[in-house]
Design a protein around this nucleic acid. Structure first.
Lengths: 137, 137
DNA sequence: TTGCGTGCAAAGGTTTTGCATGGCA
DNA sequence: TGCCATGCAAAACCTTTGCACGCAA
């Protein structure tokens, strides 16, 4: 999550507005381009890619890579409404694509272990556990 | 891991031989091509890709996708490592891009927890922990 | 002999980049 | 005004595919 200054441009606002309307949905860069085009708000594809990268950096959206030879997916991260600072982890099913949100102390413990023992400060916003969900095992 | 019949071709043997000399090392498809070329054993790149896919299917090598817009990595799985069940986890620094390999029981425990309590079968091959490394914290 | 494996070239699709222009602060 | 952002086109990039030929079984 970087905090370099950014301009508030029309294109950025359009993208943000779009993502806010599709929480929990994973969309590709070309999905975004198509959707915007169909809604008369065409944005250059390089701008889309560049803004997606920015939004990922800022932790506003997440990027998922299911397999290297298909396009990356992006998903809006809803600002946590809870004030209790509960950390949310994400599991993504490689088969059905389902995204599971977890609040789990065990994983928080692992995160602490990672920091204490391996000096690695894991970022739960960006980290996704890939695997198989209950239905797809 | 499939077990469909395969021919024992010269190219396959060369690839296997190469991987056996670099256990625990991550190499890309183009790394392989380059190395072979420099050692006078050039193999067509499509063959390399096809054989890599075969070897992954057979569980002889692992494929890692660190981030979608860089090439996939392959790593030889040593046959005798089955008893140790040495699973390799990956941490990627968001700032400097460094990739860290971890063999860690604590994380394996988390993986088991994920399965037992959340019915999610995590795939360490696909999962990458993003965050900040020691130097970049 | 059978049909999978190979190699070349080309296609495929996603993502990045160069550069001139536009627009925010 | 000073820069960053945008958009177009083109490049870069990794990977897959078509096809004819070679080779293992």
């Amino acid at each position: 999550m970087s905090n370099r200054s950014r301009y508030k441009t029309k294109q950025r606002e359009i993208l943000l507005g779009y993502f806010e309307t599709v929480p929990g949905v994973h969309v590709t860069a070309s999905d975004v381009c198509e959707y915007l085009q169909e809604h008369g708000a065409t944005i250059g594809q390089s701008t889309v890619y560049r803004q997606l990268e920015n939004l990922v950096d800022e932790g506003i959206i997440n990027k998922y890579i299911i397999d290297g030879s298909s396009p990356a997916c992006f998903e809006y991260v809803e600002p946590d409404s809870h004030e209790d600072a509960e950390i949310c982890f994400h599991c993504k099913c490689e088969k059905c694509g389902k995204l599971i949100h977890l609040h789990c102390e065990e994983i928080e413990g692992m995160q602490i272990h990672l920091f204490d023992e391996h000096r690695f400060k894991m970022n739960p916003m960006r980290t996704v556990f890939y695997g198989l969900c209950e239905q797809c095992i």
